[in-house]
Design a protein around this nucleic acid. Structure first.
Lengths: 165, 165
DNA sequence: TAGACGTAGA
DNA sequence: TCTACGTCTA
């Protein structure tokens, strides 16, 4: 229920199952999956460190995320990824959501993954809960604009229902 | 009801009264007041011209709208109004919503006015329906950035309930 | 494809 | 104050 799910947490969300779908990104916070209304990486304090709670991988942008079997490559935030972006090209930094994802490796905390899929009529996206992933490692890479991007490698936890994407 | 109000129209919206309030701008379309989810000026075809159906005047931006008794001065869209805007400074043009507001003068069609008021806790805004206004005239003006802005002058129709802002 | 008076949190 | 994997219409 809403009352229960309105607080941020690490791991599964009560009442939400793999494959559950919602119509708007902004509505993800109502069901407790993801509380950053616009951002892709949500996180919270665990002890004295921030760790990631959830990430949204959304179709149709230039982040270049990839899903290969149970491995996901997720691009960090900040800097400039989109080619249409007119602002000065900047490197991504290990702060905020990026730092939280990196911290999740050592803390061994799971991350909820939500996939934003463009609707068939091309109007808006559906957001589907894909389950829990563990962040295994990350690397720096130069993106198409020449600046540094973080690439996080996550692995889907075993034993979760299959979802067709 | 939603079924009735989901179509754009000129003038009053069935079931909606002056002073009615809603929590999110994006929800204005659910009750039929304003269908442009982000834009301030909504409009539709009347005959072969576009006329304005509704405008949103929102607190805390740099548009500099003013309400003096039953007269409202509303700034057009486009160009650059905000000082933080980094893009090239451009003049506003008499197209889109601006053209529709200008057409509303000759067509003598009323415009619904919604006022976005910052909440006391500073989180988001409440959108209050302020009733019907008639566009009486407009002029061009140079804004603080030196570019041309349109200033529309509207007058609140008589006989509508008083709303305290 | 880009513009548009959004929103919440760090 | 700024950022952030939004969303719709023209």
């Amino acid at each position: 229920g809403m009352q229960v799910n309105c607080q941020k947490r690490i791991g599964p969300v009560p009442g939400i199952e793999v494959g559950d779908e919602i119509q708007f990104k902004a509505a993800l916070n109502v069901i407790g999956l993801h509380f950053d209304i616009m951002g892709g990486i949500d996180y919270m304090k665990k002890g004295n460190k921030e760790v990631a709670t959830s990430i949204v991988s959304s179709e149709g942008n230039d982040y270049g995320d990839r899903f290969i079997n149970d491995v996901m490559i997720y691009c960090g935030q900040g800097g400039n990824v989109k080619s249409k972006d007119q602002k000065a090209i900047k490197d991504q930094k290990l702060v905020g959501g990026n730092l939280a994802l990196a911290n999740s490796i050592k803390e061994k905390t799971p991350v909820r993954v939500i996939r934003g899929e463009r609707r068939l009529d091309q109007r808006g996206k559906d957001y589907v809960y894909d389950g829990l992933y563990m962040v295994e490692k990350y690397r720096k890479e130069r993106g198409p604009l020449g600046n540094i991007l973080f690439k996080f490698e996550l692995r889907r936890k075993a034993g979760q229902p299959y979802v067709d994407f």
